[in-house]
Measured scan of single mutants.
Amino acid sequence: EINVTSHGEEQAKHWIELAKRMNLDVEVEIHGDKIIITIK
C-alpha cells in the first residue's frame, strides 16, 4: 500500500493514471489543498 500526498491536481492525475495502468486500486481523499492518494 502506497500513500502519496499531492499538492497539485496534475501530480495527482499522474499517480492515478499510473495506478490504473498497473491495475491497482486507488482511493483519493481531498483535504483542502492536499490530495491524499492511497494505492493498494
Rank of each mutant, 00 (worst) to 15 (best):
N3E: 09
V28Q: 00
I36V: 06
H31M: 09
V28G: 00
D33S: 09
I2R: 02
I39Q: 01
V26M: 02
R21Q: 12
L24R: 01
G8V: 13
V4P: 04
R21H: 14
W15H: 05
K13Y: 07
Q11H: 05
K40C: 12
N3K: 13
Q11E: 08
E27A: 05
T5R: 02
I35L: 03
K34V: 10
E1V: 11
R21V: 13
E10F: 10
I39D: 00
H7Q: 04
T5F: 08
V28P: 00
S6N: 09
E29S: 07
I39R: 00
L18G: 03
L24I: 12
I36D: 01
V28D: 00
I2A: 10
N3P: 08
A19D: 13
D33H: 10
K40P: 01
T38V: 05
E27S: 12
R21M: 12
I39E: 00
G8Q: 10
A12H: 06
I37T: 00
L18F: 10
E17R: 08
H31D: 04
N3S: 09
E29A: 09
I37S: 00
I36R: 02
I37N: 00
I37D: 00
I35N: 00
E10N: 07
G32E: 09
N23C: 13
H14A: 07
H14Q: 09
M22D: 05
N3H: 13
S6W: 11
E27D: 03
Q11T: 11
W15V: 02
E1G: 08
T5W: 05
G32A: 11
N3F: 11
D33L: 09
N23D: 05
E17N: 05
E1A: 07
R21Y: 15
I16R: 03
V26Q: 00
K34Q: 07
W15M: 02
I2N: 11
K40Y: 10
I36M: 02
E9T: 13
H14M: 11
G8I: 15
I35F: 03
K20V: 15
E17W: 13
L24M: 03
E29Y: 11
K13D: 07
H7K: 12
K40Q: 02
H31A: 04
E9I: 14
V4I: 08
E17Q: 05
I35T: 01
Q11W: 14
A19S: 05
G8A: 09
V28L: 03
G32I: 08
E1Q: 08
T38I: 11
A19H: 10
I36A: 01
W15Y: 03
S6G: 05
N3W: 15
N23F: 15
W15K: 05
I39H: 00
K20T: 10
S6D: 03
T5I: 12
E10R: 08
E29I: 11
L24F: 08
V26G: 01
E27P: 00
H14W: 15
E27T: 13
N23I: 15
L18S: 03
L18N: 03
H7Y: 13
K20H: 13
Q11D: 09
H31F: 09
G32Q: 12
I30T: 02
G8P: 09
E9G: 06
V28S: 01
K40N: 03
I16G: 04
S6V: 15
I39W: 03
I37R: 00
L18C: 14
R21I: 12
E29G: 02
